[in-house]
Simulated scan of single mutants.
Amino acid sequence: MRISVARLSRRLRTLRPARADDARPPLTLTQFAALAALARHGSMTPRELADHEKVQPPSMTRVIAFLEDQGLLARTPHPTDGRQAVLAPTEAGHALLAEERRRKEQWLARRLNELTDEERDILHRAAPVLDKLSRST
C-alpha cells in the first residue's frame, strides 16, 4: 500500500508543467508547497512558514524571495510586531494554485473513469481511511 500511495502522489506531482505564460520559471515543489500552505492555512510570518514546512529559515527566505519576485506572494507588516512581516498569496498566487488543482483533478477524473464500478466503489470506501492515515502523527 505504501508503494502504491507513494507512486500516485509522485504521479500527481509530476503533472506540474512549466508555467504557461513562459515569463516565469516553474515553481519547485518546495516553492509550490509554501504557497499552498499559506493559501490553505492563512497568513503566516516567515518563521511560522519555515516551521510549518519543516525547513530552515534561510532556505525559506530564498523561497519567499522567489515567490515575491514572481508576484505570487505578498508581504505586509505584522499588525502587532513591527519587526515581523506577514505573508499571504496574491491573486496571481491563488490563480496558480487553482489551475494546478484543476489540472490534477482532471487527470484523476480521467483515470477514475478507466476503472470499473466496483473499483471506484472500493476507492470511495477507502478514501476516509486513507484520509485518517494521512492525518496521523
Rank of each mutant, 00 (worst) to 15 (best):
H124S: 12
R102C: 03
E119A: 12
Q31K: 03
R24T: 15
E48A: 10
A34T: 01
D117F: 10
F66T: 14
I3Y: 13
A34N: 01
R135V: 12
V129S: 08
L97K: 03
L38V: 05
R120G: 02
T80P: 00
A39Q: 08
T90M: 03
M1G: 12
T14W: 07
R103E: 06
P77Q: 12
Q70A: 13
P77M: 03
L38E: 07
P77F: 00
D81M: 08
E114T: 10
V55E: 09
E48S: 06
S59G: 11
E114Y: 00
Q70K: 11
S4D: 11
V63C: 03
A95H: 09
L130D: 04
H41V: 02
Q31H: 09
G93E: 01
V129P: 01
I122L: 14
L15V: 13
Q106V: 12
A126G: 04
A20W: 05
R24Y: 01
R13F: 00
S134T: 15
E68C: 13
D21Q: 05
R125P: 00
Q31V: 04
A39R: 08
V5A: 14
T76R: 11
E100T: 10
A127F: 04
A18Y: 00
L49G: 04
L49E: 07
R16C: 07
T45R: 06
I64W: 01
K104R: 15
D22G: 14
L87G: 03
S134Q: 11
A126Y: 09
P57G: 07
E48P: 02
